[in-house]
């Protein structure tokens, strides 16, 4: 089965309850965000960026099966 690996960081680990999940493959990042919000309604009011294979994605991006996505809430290092 085609899946996407999803890494979860910061406060979003509280919303999702895990730091890593597997998600059924969807074709692009917009469909992914939509499906993610349906699975985890607690994410709807959260602000976060997406990275695909460690690259920040600011516009819609086509996904491939096996891609690693990351949910990145605002950074607070230092």
């Amino acid at each position: 089965m085609s899946v996407l690996e999803v890494l979860v960081f910061g406060q979003l680990t509280d919303s999702i309850g895990k730091d890593r999940i597997h998600f059924s493959y969807v074709q692009d990042t917009e469909l992914f965000r939509k499906a993610l919000n349906e699975s985890f309604p607690g994410l709807r009011d959260k602000t976060f960026l997406l990275a695909v294979n460690q690259e920040l994605v600011l516009k819609k991006k086509i996904l491939k099966p096996g891609d690693t996505l990351a949910l990145l809430p605002p950074f607070s290092g230092g």
Binding site: F9, G10, Q11, A70, L72, P73, F75, S76, G77, G78
Partner: peptide
């Protein structure tokens, strides 16, 4: 220091 705070994916 500014770049570390604004662009490294680190959370406290």
């Amino acid at each position: 220091v500014n770049n570390i705070k604004s662009s490294l994916p680190i959370w406290g």
